[in-house]
């Protein structure tokens, strides 16, 4: 179990392939994970906690970030990814923009060149994980039940079941939703927002939080540009208003047009991460060598 601050308790979400083997020694409150077969279910039931003792009404200052717990799980995931050289991407978009299609096309292209795995998030069904497995790549489905986004805790549980190879690519397909996943860091190295040209060029302005937090915007379905009123330049201008440093690529997951720069971007970003890791390990080695006087 990798999550070090887990509070597993009770609910209705679901992850594939996990027996609920909880060996944490920290306290458990209310979220619960049901793990059976090749699926993990998540969801939070109502909390029940009654602290003993009564006192007079009083004021308590606490100043706690509501997302603090998610952020602690995300940090644990991020440490895990760095330690194992895994380049993790969080793919976010509205439903139907082409995340799964893009993933299967990407996996087909990169298969055999480096280790890859996919975590699929949907409210229900394992259709998308099945589509990924058809490419021969390992996938695990998380069903969030009523949940409209993945959180870092769910991803931590999925990691327990994925048995990832070292130094690979890990794609996390978030629940289709252009609003809620923005608030939840999963511990990913990069966040990729996918916008298809059938959705309208003003989406960066309408859903700014999602574009503000992304490193890369992929404009998908450019094969449909002749049939829709989508102004690519305007969309790019809007995205840069929200996020001046966002990187932007346009492609069609269906025809393969524009796939090459995306694959290059993936390789470059992964190499940059691995190089940073190498530098860090070399610095540690230098210290150790100096200490043993060799």
């Amino acid at each position: 179990m990798m999550c070090t601050v887990c509070g597993c308790g009770e609910g209705d979400g679901h992850i594939e392939g996990q027996e609920h083997g909880h060996s944490h020694d920290h306290e458990h409150t209310q979220d619960h994970v049901h793990d059976h077969g090749d699926h993990i279910h998540f969801g939070q039931g109502p909390a029940h906690a009654h602290a003993p003792g009564l006192s007079q009404a009083r004021m308590v200052r606490i100043e706690q970030d509501i997302l603090g717990k998610n952020d602690r799980y995300a940090d644990a995931n991020r440490m895990h990814f760095i330690k194992h050289g895994q380049f993790a991407l969080n793919l976010v978009s509205s439903p139907g923009s082409g995340k799964t299609t893009l993933l299967t096309a990407t996996l087909d292209q990169l298969k055999g060149t480096l280790p890859m795995a996919v975590i699929e998030g949907d409210q229900q069904t394992s259709h998308d994980a099945d589509r990924i497995r058809a490419t021969g790549v390992r996938a695990i489905q998380i069903n969030t039940g009523k949940g409209c986004h993945l959180d870092a805790h769910m991803v931590g549980h999925a990691l327990d079941n994925l048995d990832l190879e070292e130094n690979g690519l890990l794609f996390i397909e978030n629940v289709g939703n252009l609003v809620c996943p923005a608030a939840f860091d999963l511990g990913e190295a990069m966040r990729v927002v996918i916008l298809s040209v059938t959705e309208g060029d003003d989406k960066p302005l309408k859903y700014p939080d999602m574009f503000a937090g992304a490193h890369l915007m992929l404009l998908n379905k450019i094969d449909l540009l002749p049939y829709v009123d989508f102004d690519v330049e305007r969309c790019i201008e809007y995205a840069r208003r929200i996020n001046p440093s966002i990187h932007i690529l346009a492609l069609s997951a269906r025809t393969g047009d524009g796939m090459h720069p995306w694959l290059e971007w993936l390789r470059d970003q992964r190499n940059a991460m691995l190089n940073a890791r190498i530098a860090q390990l070399e610095a540690q080695m230098a210290i150790l060598k100096a200490q043993v006087g060799s």
Partner: peptide, 24 residues
Amino acid sequence: MHEMSLCESVVEILNSEARRQGFA
């Protein structure tokens, strides 16, 4: 509606503060 999970996190914070600071 991630406000639902945000409110669940609020209740978790309340529960753990209740244990730590002894209120019911």
